[in-house]
Structure formats: structure tokens, C-alpha cells
């Protein structure tokens, strides 16, 4: 390879962080996920876990079994052989997610709209228009991390994070969007809630989607929300 496609740096004494420096962000995202899948499948001794995200992968090791230097050399070798043009999934699945948007002002939709100088209805339209690619599984509980809707500005995080964000809420922050599969504290503004149950502790992973799958949000009313409450999230 003529130019380095990643920067590898230690992240403590038991993890390496691999960050893509490819100009093409899509290619960088594919690269770190292909890397994660390769390392997973290879069962590299001493590697405990790989956490691929948007442009980076955190690779956690057991320092008793492998050194960060040796792992770094190995990863450089692996990355040279990866084709970052290959799609993550040949046949991405699509998940339809009905959302009761927060038009009653119970959550943060009005605040988000005000910060964008848009109406709440415009925010709903912009949020439910795109088909989103699941970029990675994040905190908490395997949230599908999505590129945010095409709002004019990044969405500010809440000045004071909520101690309890219930499961099923739909939120946005910065240029990102997600659904929360499990109740947890959180600082992202909430713009609606889905009646679907995302988390299934009997499955592995606990969530039905994987990076590369697609998500579409559809506005619904309170009655439909009630009738769908507890339905499992499944692909189309």
C-alpha cells in the first residue's frame, strides 16, 4: 500500500485505536468494520474484543497474551489485505421503525426545532425522510448509530443529561441519530418514541440489526403507538 489508510495509537495499556484517514468516509467506515469482522473471525490470541464505530475501531487485548506492538504490526498487515470498497453486506435488511413524534412537547422536539429555526413538523419530516444506514452498535445496549438527518445545524446535547432515558426513545445529537434499546442515562435530545421492542436478551447479539443494515422512520399517531406497543423489531 502506498499511503497509510489508518492511524494506529495505543488507548491505554490494553487497547489499540485504529482510525481511518481515508478521504472517503464511507470507505473508512467499511474499512474499520471489515477489520473488526476479520479479527473476530480469525480469533486472534489475546484479542478480547473489537468495537468498530464510524471511522475507528477500538481493539481490546489481554496484555498477558499479546503486546500492543505485536498486535499493531499484525493489524497493519491485515489492513493491507482488506478491500475497503467491498460493501459490508451484499443484501442489507431494512427495518421499518414507527415513531410517535413528540408533537405534544413532552420531550425535546420543540427545543431541537427552535435550535434549527424550523417547525416541529419540519423536524419530523427531515427525520423520517432518509433511509439510514446502521453505522455501528453503540451504547447503551447496542443502539443503532445512524448518520443524523439533514438538519441545517448540529444538534446540541442537553446541558444536563437525563438520569433515566426510557427504552424505545428516538434521539438526535450532533450529526448523529439513534434509537435507545435499553433504559439508561443519556444526554441526547429526545424527539419521539417507537412502540417496538428492540432488545432481545435471548438473541446474540441482543439487537436485530447489524452494521450495514437500513432503518426507516415512519410517523404514527397515539392510537397506532398503543396497538403496536411491545411488537418486536424485525426486518421487512
Amino acid at each position: 500500500m502506498s499511503e497509510a489508510s489508518v492511524v494506529v495509537s495505543p488507548s491505554g495499556n490494553s487497547a489499540l485505536r485504529v482510525v481511518s484517514v481515508l478521504a472517503d468516509r464511507e470507505a473508512g467506515w467499511r474499512l474499520v468494520h471489515h477489520l473488526a469482522r476479520f479479527v473476530d473471525a480469525a480469533h486472534v490470541p489475546g484479542v478480547e474484543c473489537v468495537i468498530p464505530t464510524y471511522d475507528a475501531a477500538l481493539i481490546e487485548i489481554d496484555p498477558a497474551e499479546v503486546s500492543l506492538d505485536r498486535l499493531g504490526d499484525y493489524l497493519a498487515h491485515v489492513i493491507e489485505g482488506l478491500d475497503h470498497d467491498r460493501p459490508l453486506t451484499d443484501t442489507p435488511r431494512t427495518f421499518d421503525v414507527p415513531v410517535l413524534y413528540d408533537l405534544d412537547g413532552e420531550l425535546d422536539l420543540q427545543t431541537v426545532a427552535a435550535a434549527q429555526s424550523l417547525s416541529a413538523e419540519e423536524i419530523v419530516r427531515l427525520h423520517s425522510e432518509p433511509t439510514y444506514v446502521v453505522r455501528c452498535l453503540g451504547a447503551p445496549g447496542g443502539s443503532p448509530m445512524l448518520d443524523g438527518p439533514p438538519f441545517p445545524n448540529p444538534v446540541p446535547r442537553l446541558a444536563s443529561p437525563r438520569a433515566h432515558v426510557p427504552q424505545g426513545v428516538v434521539s438526535v445529537a450532533g450529526r448523529q441519530a439513534t434509537i435507545t434499546p435499553a433504559a439508561a442515562p443519556g444526554g441526547w435530545p429526545l424527539i419521539g418514541r417507537t412502540p417496538l421492542t428492540v432488545l432481545d436478551l435471548d438473541a446474540e447479539p441482543f439487537v436485530p440489526y447489524e452494521p450495514g443494515d437500513l432503518i426507516r422512520f415512519t410517523p404514527i399517531g397515539p392510537d397506532e403507538y398503543e396497538s403496536l406497543l411491545g411488537t418486536r423489531m424485525v426486518a421487512r
Binding site: 488507548s11 491505554g12 490494553s14 487497547a15 485505536r17 482510525v19 468495537i51 468498530p52 464505530t53 464510524y54 471511522d55 475507528a56 475501531a57 477500538l58 481490546e60 455501528c136 453503540g138 448509530m145 448540529p154 450532533g174 450529526r175 448523529q176
Partner: peptide, 9 residues
């Protein structure tokens, strides 16, 4: 804006 990334313990 910083994109979400894996953070080590």
C-alpha cells in the same frame, strides 16, 4: 463535533 468512538475502560 466528535463522532462516537469506542472508549476503553
Amino acid at each position: 463535533e466528535v463522532l462516537s468512538r469506542g472508549v476503553p475502560v
